[in-house]
Amino acid sequence: MVTPLNPEAFENLRLELRRGCLVLAVLAALRREQYGYTLRKILSERGLEIDEGTLYPLLRRLESQGLLASEWREEEKRKKRFYLLSVSGALVLEQLLDEWSSLDSSIREILKGEK
């Protein structure tokens, strides 16, 4: 008899899988300048929900690693912090995308072999 995995354990596995993908998605989305809220909306519209408690610390970490640049600007009477991919961020994004494609094709190969 197959014992179903409990929902909490599945949620942990799902979050673990998503964690690396989120970095890639954020870097890719910030090839165009965005501020936090619009970035969240863009990701959500493309099927990648991310809550603000995850997004803002992630943006700060990526900025401290030099992958993003940010500046405060006033827009629609409100001060907003805009983020943009830095030059080294663009390089890292390229390398990560290569890694992503390689992982994707490896997993597809493994799945094909199993069939």
Binding site: Y35, G36, Y37, R40, K41, E52, Y56, R60, W72, R78, K79, K80, R81
Partner: peptide
């Protein structure tokens, strides 16, 4: 050291969400 900066950003996010 980051209190004001983070709060300004979070505040912007909350108000943007409400306006939306």
């Amino acid at each position: 050291r980051q209190k004001d900066d983070i709060i300004a950003e979070l505040s912007g996010d909350i108000y943007a969400q409400i306006e939306d």
